[in-house]
Simulated scan of single mutants.
Amino acid sequence: MMDVDVVVVGGGPAGLSCALNLVRARQRVLVLDGNRPRHAATLMSHGFLTRDGVPPLELRRLAREDVEAYENGTVAFAQVDSITPAGEGFVVKATGVRGAANHEVRARRVVLATGLTERLPQVQGLRAFYGTSVHSCFECDGFEKSDQPLLMLGETEDLVRRALHTSLWSNDVIALSNGSDRVPATAEAELAGAGIRLDRRPIAELVGDRTGLTGVRFADGEVLERSAGFVRPEWTVPDSFLADLGLERTVSAHVGPAADSVDPEVGALITVDAEGRTSVPGVYAVGDITPPGPQQLIVAAGAGARTAAAVLRDTLDTRIHAVDLASS
């Protein structure tokens, strides 16, 4: 069984930033990355200082190279199957991805940085335009859609707020609920003051051509011309491998299980303190899977560095405690 100081689960900006700071403190770190990033469809990332406009997958590649430039840092493509408390640490079992070896690792500490899984509204054609004409992150892609006729597609209670957010980049915004009964009855009046119309009709498909999105076809056949827009996915924490840890969760209106789920904590955010410590000593969580949920890449990376500092402080406290016991 391989022994390391820290296993980081997830190879996005939060996990790799945490790993980089840990390897620089001479910790033996293994990053296990399922290599299925939520932003895989996005062509360009924005708002990351010195990397504005770099493709997200390129940003991840560069970050992996940073970590592996240190002999005590390893990144492996693998899907984590379980994390089990064992003695003063944890046993992490993972299945290799794309031919990589399987792993059974003993780690003193574990950092969870998996990111979220997302479910888009079931609208035909949405996937074809997602990441090019239609996006989910305002900070990442809003500027590039400035002054265009935009849609804001969402089926959840926060559609009003998201439509208002969209209006920061264009005065021509139409909110679409796709027939969802979760959008409150007061939404039309709330949006009217901002000059935004809410259309509740079911959507048949998004339409377009080689240049991108051109419009929305409703179930009744009418086509609304739009050239770009935003969508509100529904997010959950990928948590099937966390069952043995019994982590405290934070149920959120923005991230969590479907409305009809029998267990309100399945898929819910992982509760952490200000530095990323979970309710289980030795386990930390960082990035999108912690409150408040989805974050800009640069925010997630910063949080990863902050949590690395907490891991190192806790490691030092453990060593000091051991010395005190030995000398008493």
Rank of each mutant, 00 (worst) to 15 (best):
V323W: 12
A86I: 04
P281N: 05
V207D: 06
T307H: 03
E71N: 10
H165P: 00
D220H: 00
T214G: 02
D66R: 10
L120R: 01
R24A: 05
V31Q: 04
A187P: 13
L224F: 11
A326V: 04
D199K: 01
G15R: 05
T278E: 05
P202S: 09
D239L: 05
R28S: 07
A243K: 12
G212L: 06
A94R: 03
A219Q: 10
E65P: 08
G12I: 10
G179W: 08
T315A: 12
S327Q: 14
F143A: 13
F77P: 00
A113G: 03
R106K: 04
P292C: 07
P85E: 12
R306V: 09
Q296F: 08
D158G: 10
A185N: 04
E275T: 13
E234Q: 15
S133C: 08
G11R: 01
A194S: 15
A76D: 02
V173S: 07
T278G: 01
V255K: 03
S328E: 14
T318Q: 15
L150A: 09
A40Q: 12
H254T: 13
G15D: 08
I320Y: 05
V123N: 00
G89F: 04
A268E: 10
R210Q: 14
P233H: 05
N72W: 03
L151A: 08
G221T: 06
G208T: 10
D260N: 07
V223E: 00
M44S: 14
A185S: 13
T166K: 07
R217I: 00
L151I: 15
G276H: 02
F48W: 13
A128N: 13
A305D: 01
R109E: 03
F138S: 05
D273Q: 02
T132F: 05
T156G: 09
A285M: 11
W235F: 15
P291A: 13
F241C: 06
G142W: 03
R200I: 04
I203W: 11
R24C: 09
V29A: 02
L312C: 01
R64I: 14
R61P: 01
C137G: 05
K93P: 00
P292K: 05
G15N: 02
R249V: 08
V97D: 01
S167Q: 13
Y130T: 06
R319V: 11
D181I: 09
F218H: 10
A258K: 06
R319G: 05
E155I: 12
E234C: 07
R108F: 02
R319E: 15
A194K: 08
A310H: 07
V91M: 02
V134Q: 01
T84M: 00
R249F: 09
R64T: 06
K145I: 03
P281S: 08
T74I: 11
Y70W: 09
T236M: 07
L32Y: 02
A303R: 14
F143M: 10
R197C: 01
T211E: 13
Y130A: 11
V231C: 02
T95I: 02
N35V: 10
L116Y: 06
L153E: 00
V80I: 05
R61F: 02
S328W: 12
S328A: 14
P55D: 09
G96L: 01
T186P: 00
I83A: 04
Y70R: 03
F129W: 11
V110F: 02
L325S: 08
W235L: 14
R161M: 14
L206N: 09
L153S: 08
